[in-house]
Design a protein around this nucleic acid. Structure first.
Lengths: 231, 231
DNA sequence: ATGCAATGGATTGTCAACAATCTGCTTCAA
DNA sequence: TTGAAGCAGATTGTTGACAATCCATTGCAT
């Protein structure tokens, strides 16, 4: 049984270079809204803020750009991506396709130990949601955990990189900045359980179908919230 | 009716910087096998080869890494990705999911003009395949054209970037280096026609299903070829 | 002969200065 | 008053030199 500790998404670099540190710090600052979305990033001021020269900083920014958190134009500068309703919907569409496939592959290939760990995690989440009759913890921690495990369980390295290295950070950025806490916790947990069951039964087709429906349901929940807020 | 000229995948940068040029040249050299897969890239020798300093070169390499054509390790160096049968299959799995979704979205959203252009392109391909009773042209030019159009027609910016900026270049690398010329040209054309019909009928569900089957069929064709070659 | 430690060479990471480019403001003419 | 052309300031792109790190070879001890 695995610990509920944060899952190492992409293997952290064996040796940490200055650019790596700056990359992590900058990403967190952007994702958590410390640096507001849409704002312009000046290389000199950032270099001073992180106490590094422009070389490693530019490398970090380049990597942020490759994860689509930054947009650069030559001789003009870099801006943090703008969070729009449209982009969020696009993100959900891609996630639906990719995570559906991940669930299918996980059902076909995940080790029995992996499936057991998945079921254990689900049980733990069930306990937590019961205990604090709460929605807060689940959507903020449990849901990403669930999705990570499925994706990693697919065994498809490319799938893992696209989702864990890029899309999930962006998804977290939306959660942080739009302040979404789902009231869908109980429904989501039920949907998770169905997906896990399908994986345990090695029914790839059903697992994919259920996962896609789960992602669509999440999207609709978000859509409703945004409509209420009048974004 | 559009010209059969090469489709501009991602908008070429308005101003071309040195790093941009090196990026394009390096990518082409890697994709076309001019620089063999798995080989190590030395910064000094490449800098001399392209007659630039290490700064822009490193930026270009960083971008190649973000497209997963290069792998870097700190203080060790960069290597061109190794082309393995396993990675190729992973690529097809991701493409199946993503292009299936693209076909669905294209069916729902593509403009009538876009659909007309798609049909015209198909007709042109049909003529070409008839004329040279040939498979060469089609798989090397026509098939990518077809997939590009569908993806762009989805209107999902993120989908477009993932597929056109990253995956398609890698797919082309496999084609170039494994020297695949499909004997599947006629079958593929038929499959394309079915997808286009579904899009024209605005039947997203069917379009997705057909596109996924088409990608799977391509994968199987490649698998068979690789088995024959004993890779 | 085998395993381990130290050293030399090369490669990459980092830094600060220089050059090219863009943006916004000022100025001038219609 | 409006529009375009030119200039100033700042920002980014590029360069070459310096420092830190790793890999392979060599030598030695077991």
């Amino acid at each position: 049984m695995d610990s509920p500790a944060p899952i190492p998404v992409s293997a952290p670099p064996l040796v940490s270079t200055v650019a790596d540190r700056v990359f992590d710090q900058l990403r967190r600052a952007i994702v958590e809204g410390d640096i507001p979305a849409g704002s312009k990033l000046s290389e000199p001021v950032l270099a001073e803020r992180f106490a590094v020269s422009r070389g490693p900083l530019r490398e970090a920014m380049r990597r942020l750009e490759s994860t689509h958190l930054l947009e650069r134009r030559a001789n003009v500068g870099a801006r943090v991506v703008a969070l729009t309703r449209e982009r969020l919907m696009e993100l959900y569409e891609v996630r639906e396709a990719l995570e559906g496939m991940a669930a299918r592959l996980a059902a076909e290939r995940m080790s029995v130990a992996g499936v057991a760990a998945l079921q254990a995690m689900l049980e733990q989440h069930r306990g937590e949601i019961e205990r604090e009759c709460g929605q807060a913890y689940f959507q903020q921690e449990g849901d990403p955990d669930f999705h990570y495990r499925i994706v990693v369980g697919s065994g498809n390295q490319r799938l893992i990189r696209i989702l864990c290295d890029d899309l999930y950070h962006l998804a977290r950025m939306y959660r942080c900045q739009f302040g979404m806490k789902s009231e869908r916790a109980r429904d989501a947990l039920k949907e998770h359980a169905l997906v896990v069951d399908a994986i345990a039964e090695r029914d790839g087709e059903l697992a994919e179908w259920l996962m896609r429906r789960h992602v669509r349901a999440s999207r609709k929940g978000v859509e409703r919230r945004l409509a209420d807020d009048g974004r």
